[in-house]
Design a protein around this nucleic acid. Sequence first.
DNA 1: ATAATATGTAACATTTGTGTTACACAAATA
DNA 2: TATTTGTGTAACACAAATGTTACATATTAT
Lengths: 112, 112
Amino acid sequence: MNIANYDSFLAIADPHRREILMMLSKEKLPMNSIADRFDISRPAISRHVRVLHATGFIDIEEKGRERICMLNQAGFNEIQDWMDHFEKYWISQLQSLDEFLKKNESINNKKE
Amino acid sequence: MNIANYDSFLAIADPHRREILMMLSKEKLPMNSIADRFDISRPAISRHVRVLHATGFIDIEEKGRERICMLNQAGFNEIQDWMDHFEKYWISQLQSLDEFLKKNESINNKKE
DNA sequence: ATAATATGTAACATTTGTGTTACACAAATA
DNA sequence: TATTTGTGTAACACAAATGTTACATATTAT
C-alpha cells in the first residue's frame, strides 16, 4: 500500500513495527542493525521503518552512508491524545459510581 | 480473518472501529443503532463489534433480542501499558537533557 | 399465528498489507 | 580504482482484512 495512507494507529498495528520501536527505546540503531535482529528480509524492515518515520514514530539521522533511527515523540502523542479522551470517560464513570454509592449509603442509613 | 488472531493494536487500527468506540464513549448503544450511523452494511459493523468485544474494548449486555454495547476498560489498558513504557523513555530523555544542560552550565561558568 | 425486529454468520469478491528477490547507487575501504 | 558496505525501491506473490449479499434464528408486537 501507499505509505501516505498509513496513520499512527495502523503504524503500531504491526508486531514487527512495535518490536522496532521497543528496540529503539533501548538504543539508537542504524537501519541494517535493526534488520539484523529480525528474521525477515532487510527490505521488509526498511519498509517498516519508512512507515514508522512517515507516521512520526521515528526520526532518522543521516550519517555518511548510514541512517541512524531513533524514537520521535510525535507519533506517540497522537495515540496518547486518543487514549486521553477515553481516560476522561473512565474517570467520569468512576464519579458516577461514587455518586451512586453515596446515594445508596444515605438510603441504607434511613433504613436503619 | 479469524477473530482469534486480532490483538488490541489491530483492533484500533481500523477507523470504523475507532469511530464505534468514540460513539460508545457518549452512550451505550444496541448493535443496530451503531450500524444505522454508518454507511457500511450492518454485517460489517457486526463484525467490527465482534472484534472490539474479543479484544476487550467492548462489553455486551443481552437484553431480550437486543445486544447493548458499552465500553470495557480492559482493551484500553493494554494500549496504555504499552504507551507507559515509552512515556518512561521520554522522561529519561528529558533527564539526560537536563543533566547535559547543567554540565554545560558549569563549563560556561568556568570560562567566565 | 403471523409479521416485524434485532440480530448472527457463511460465502464470496475486493482491497490492503506484508514479504521476497532482484537490482541500483552512493559512501567507505582496500 | 575496485570492492565492500549500507541503503532504497520496484515488481511480484501471497496473506490478511474488509465489505457485500443472502440466509438463518430468536424475540417481540399485532
